[in-house]
Simulated assay, not measured.
Amino acid sequence: MAQLVGADEIESFRIELSEIGRSLRSSFRRHATSFRNNSVVSSAKDVDLDDESVLQWAAIDRLPTFERLRTSLFDENDGNEADGRGRRVVDVTKLGAPERHMFIEKLIKHIEHDNLRLLQKIRKRIDTAGVKLSAIEVRYTNLSIEAECEVVYGKPLPTLWNSLKSMLLELARLPGLQSKQEAKIGIMNGVSGIIKPGRMTLLLGPPGCGKTTLLKALSGNLNKSLKVTGDISYNGYKLEEFVAQKTSAYISQYDLHIPEMTVRETLDFSSRCQGIGSRGDILTVLTRKEKEAKIVPDPDIDTYMKAIAVEGQKTSLQTDYILKILGLDICADTFVGDAMRRGISGGQKKRVTA
């Protein structure tokens, strides 16, 4: 009988322990949920979100990574708070032309001030999440460039006599008759310097001093016929160790465009050719860190960064942004044109090139 009573007491004690364990787990889950909600609400107050927007953002935060990178809170207010419209959850890949135009007009009303403010907000978001952007330092040491040129006698004008004389000289240079006379011209001699990351460097010099040659050499676009000596490195890696064209780009001073395309089509075509670069990878890391830290970003900044980080789009929000800050929105649907076709002005064409 004593053994039976002892077994009952042990079973009763075991049941009590299991109930206490369930109670503790339930209490812990409630406190953890309350802590997360308070963290989200506290972060939402920093960006001035109402209760409905907080719930909408919480729904976005629970989406899979691929969908979360394409979904954002889109503010339908165009700056007039009396219109009664609010934020809604949208797929940034499905924003129409009127929505993109309205969004950019709201972000950048005054180009001189709002563009800088937009860039500062993007940098603040990245720094708040603790994401470190890659920085590239370009060094060139004892850089010398030579060109081998053919000696030309007289004035090399495209006249009939000069053409005939050139043909005769070419015949005279046949093997065994006469060797070609060449001269070496030094374009650059022992140039050294450092281009620091995060800065805008201005290169000044008189015409013919080698500015274009230096830029082409640093970007890896120099003509193969030129003789180059010296070292060029990106973060310690020489040009021979990687593809420089994937890291840097040289923009020519000549306005070479397809005249039958509009300004918007030209920028969209260029955007698709260049791709999104590292914006997609940065956004992936950024959203992951914000989710871990329970940080709610500014909806407008989040929408902008997600819209410009989508690859394969026929038209992008980035195009509307560039048109706005370059003052080309007034001629966005005008043909670029050329010498035979009427199009945009020379100044506008130069901005399209840049």
Rank of each mutant, 00 (worst) to 15 (best):
F74H: 01
L169I: 03
G176N: 10
T284E: 14
M200W: 02
A172K: 10
G96C: 02
A32M: 06
D51S: 10
K289F: 02
S252I: 04
R14H: 07
E16I: 10
M188I: 14
D281G: 11
I111D: 01
L168D: 02
Q181S: 15
M188S: 14
L226H: 10
H113E: 06
P197T: 06
K324N: 11
A217T: 11
L164Y: 08
I344D: 04
K224E: 12
Y304C: 08
E9M: 13
H31R: 15
T93M: 05
L218I: 15
S134A: 06
L323E: 13
K106H: 10
I108Y: 01
Y321D: 06
V352Q: 00
K324G: 09
K324A: 12
C149G: 00
G220I: 02
K227T: 13
L107I: 01
Y140W: 11
V243W: 07
T128L: 12
N115C: 01
D114Y: 00
D298F: 07
M167I: 15
V41G: 00
E150N: 09
D333A: 08
W57G: 00
P206K: 10
V138R: 09
P175W: 04
A309S: 15
L317R: 12
T315E: 15
K246I: 05
I322G: 01
P206N: 04
F335K: 14
L204H: 03
Y250N: 08
R199C: 13
C273N: 09
A147G: 08
G312N: 13
F242A: 15
D78Q: 02
V41H: 02
S134H: 08
A59F: 01
A58S: 10
K350I: 05
S144E: 03
A244L: 13
V131K: 02
N38I: 10
G220S: 09
G79F: 06
G130Y: 06
R68L: 01
E260A: 12
T247M: 14
E241W: 07
T33M: 11
Q253T: 13
W57D: 00
A32T: 07
Q318Y: 09
I108R: 03
G190W: 08
K294V: 06
A309M: 10
A147N: 03
S39H: 04
L202N: 07
H31V: 13
L283C: 08
G230D: 07
T319N: 11
I232A: 05
W161Y: 12
H110N: 11
P259W: 13
I10P: 00
K294T: 05
Y140M: 12
G190L: 08
S233P: 02
Q313F: 04
Q245I: 07
G84H: 07
E76K: 02
P207N: 14
E170R: 06
I232H: 01
A129P: 05
L286E: 05
D302W: 11
I322A: 09
V54C: 01
G190M: 09
